[in-house]
């Protein structure tokens, strides 16, 4: 376990100041992330308002049966992440290690499911640029270009989210190694807490993505 002296960086007066600085820095970073995603959400909204019918019908081709349960996976991972932070806080190495590993695992499961969806969509020729079949849409009297826009947003939004997940999993990997070496202590566990913040943020993004992308066509699906 490291002593206070070892972890205190020279520009700070004490550990408390260092901790506060890191926390504020992380929140600032998350603010930039909000705007980063915000732009795509805005673009999505603009086109969904312009082409409501196409967006609704295109949305029905996503697999809620995969995306829905995947959300649960992610929420659970947020829970294990919180427990990992708690573990670091109270100085329990075992809790830390198990929870970090669990979080990583859940993250990987999420990505696995996500990529399965991508594969299914590839087979169904729903990926603009790569493989897209316009005819079925045109036959339904929809404008294929506008349907494509829906899928473009779907792939950009979920893709960007997946990139964030991958970065998160990599960070968890680093934490796991450090925790294995008993790096963190109740005196200083800031990195665990920061990665935790990041992980929760990425989860929250998904909570927004799910209804925007998967659920907009649901109601009418039920009605017929």
């Amino acid at each position: 376990m490291q002593t206070e002296h070892e972890v205190l960086q020279e520009q700070f007066e004490d550990l408390e100041q260092q901790h506060e600085a890191s926390t504020l820095g992380m929140w600032t970073f998350l603010a930039t992330e909000v705007l980063f995603f915000g732009v795509i959400f805005t673009g999505y909204t603009v086109y969904r308002l312009s082409y409501p019918e196409e967006f609704r019908r295109a949305s029905q081709h996503l697999y809620v049966t995969l995306g829905g349960p995947n959300t649960l996976v992610l929420i659970t991972s947020s829970l294990t992440m919180a427990l990992a932070v708690r573990g670091a806080q109270v100085g329990s190495r075992r809790t830390q290690l198990t929870c970090l590993a669990l979080t990583m695992l859940l993250g990987l499961i999420f990505l696995g499911v996500k990529f399965t969806e991508y594969y299914i969509e590839y087979r169904a020729a729903l990926i603009p640029v790569l493989r897209f079949d316009e005819t079925p849409w045109a036959q339904q009297g929809l404008e294929p270009a506008h349907v494509k826009l829906f899928f473009v947003f779907y792939f950009i939004m979920t893709g960007l989210h997946a990139v964030h997940m991958i970065i998160g999993i990599a960070l968890l990997g680093v934490l796991l190694v450090l925790a294995g070496r008993s790096w963190f202590s109740p005196v200083w566990y800031t990195p665990v807490e920061m990665v935790g913040l990041y992980w929760h943020f990425v989860d929250v993004i998904w909570i927004f993505l799910l209804p925007l992308l998967y659920l907009i066509g649901q109601q009418s699906l039920r009605m017929g």
């Binding site: 603010a31 930039t32 705007l35 732009v39 086109y47 603009p128 270009a145």
Partner: peptide, 29 residues
Amino acid sequence: LATPVLAITLVLLALERLFGVGIFDPKLG
């Protein structure tokens, strides 16, 4: 608060240019 907006906008522009995804292209809606 502003720079990320530029960053992602430029990403979209590059995607448009590389793959013609259509977000800014009137011909594609």
